[in-house]
């Protein structure tokens, strides 16, 4: 039995660019897959293929048990798509937008009207329901776009960079909405450039770069691949740097890294907060003054850099 979203060997080329270069995906029902990668990595192309918008050159895709290439219209009944650009008609009101989408999902006019009302309440848009979407803030538009994707309560959802361009408050708000949705049993594929977002929302993460999946696993598994926790210390006086490095080397489980100009020492450790307390006591007993000390755990940024050799922000030409 394959998952609610399943893809095997997807290839799509645009001219010389292999936007998808043999992508396999398997998202079990009721879970969230985060598709993580820089601009131009192939995330959007993957979503476009899975949502019937683009035919791949080769490969196989099954969504909610239906073959995407053979029965695209069946798939369209079962999915909701929320895009990178809030795809709502800005001259229509929020209510008109949702009613139109409902009717185009083949609901009756009356059902579409009722459903639009429910969604406007649920997404906190009731007050603005009869204003053209043009007057909405960025966050409101994004919520309306998401509501439009949920008109038929689809079992499978695709969200292409749902929070790109939103301010932190709206991003948090949208995360809550997405988490509620998943708690209700929806299977979700989410693309994002924000490592924090994948970390927070996704059960599994696929890291994609140049059209290929270069790593997959849970957030913790990916972080474990990058290495464990480490202690970072910034010493107040440069003269004490060597001495402090000796102390840290005693606690460390690996190579100690010293950045002279920043008076910073980093050393991999095991033992967590308890060990950190010991380090502080030891430095203190020697009278070494410190500006900063902390226990750092690897972020998905670190994961990304260690996997791809570059940071997770790149070309502007999203494919």
């Amino acid at each position: 039995m394959t998952g609610a979203i399943y893809a095997e060997g997807l290839v799509k080329t645009f001219g010389d660019v292999r936007a998808l270069d043999g992508v396999d995906l398997d998202v079990p029902e009721g879970t969230v897959l985060g598709l993580l990668g820089p601009n131009g990595a192939g995330k959007t192309t993957a979503v476009r293929v899975l949502t019937t918008l683009l035919r791949p050159d080769s490969g196989k895709a099954v969504v909610a048990g239906v073959d995407v290439l053979r029965h695209p219209n069946e798939v369209r009944r079962l999915i909701g798509l929320s895009g990178q650009f809030a795809a709502v008609d800005e001259y229509l009101t929020g209510r008109e937008n949702l009613q139109m989408v409902g009717q185009l999902y083949q609901m009756s006019g009356r059902d579409a009207k009722v459903r639009a009302g429910e969604l406007l309440d649920q997404f906190n848009l009731a007050d603005a329901a009869d204003r053209p979407a043009k007057t909405y803030s960025g966050g409101m538009r994004r919520r309306l776009d998401l509501a439009a994707a949920l008109v038929v309560r689809p079992p499978v959802m695709f969200m292409d960079e749902p929070t790109t361009g939103l301010d932190p408050r709206n991003r948090l708000g949208l995360w809550d909405v997405i988490q509620d949705l998943v708690a209700g049993g929806t299977t979700l594929l989410l693309t994002t450039q924000y490592l924090e977002e994948a970390d927070r929302l996704a059960h599994d993460i696929c890291v994609i770069d140049h059209g290929k999946v270069i790593a997959r696993g849970t957030s913790d598994q990916l972080k474990a691949r990058t290495g464990g926790e480490r202690v970072e210390v910034v010493v107040h006086e440069r003269e004490r740097l060597t001495e402090a490095t000796e102390v840290l080397r005693g606690f460390g489980k690996g190579e100690t890294k010293v950045e002279d100009h920043m008076r910073q020492i980093t050393v991999p450790v095991t033992g967590g907060a308890k060990l950190l307390a010991e380090v502080i006591r030891e430095l203190d007993s020697r009278g070494i003054e410190i500006d900063d000390i902390g226990l750092r755990r690897p972020t998905l940024d670190d994961v990304f850099i260690s996997l791809t050799g570059h940071v997770a922000e790149l070309k502007e030409d999203a494919v």
Binding site: G3, G65, Q106, M107, D111, V151, V152, R153, P154
Partner: peptide, 16 residues
Amino acid sequence: MTAVSATPTATPQPRN
């Protein structure tokens, strides 16, 4: 096919 049956969608009306 379990994915389909698990969450009922709004009844789409069959049409010519």
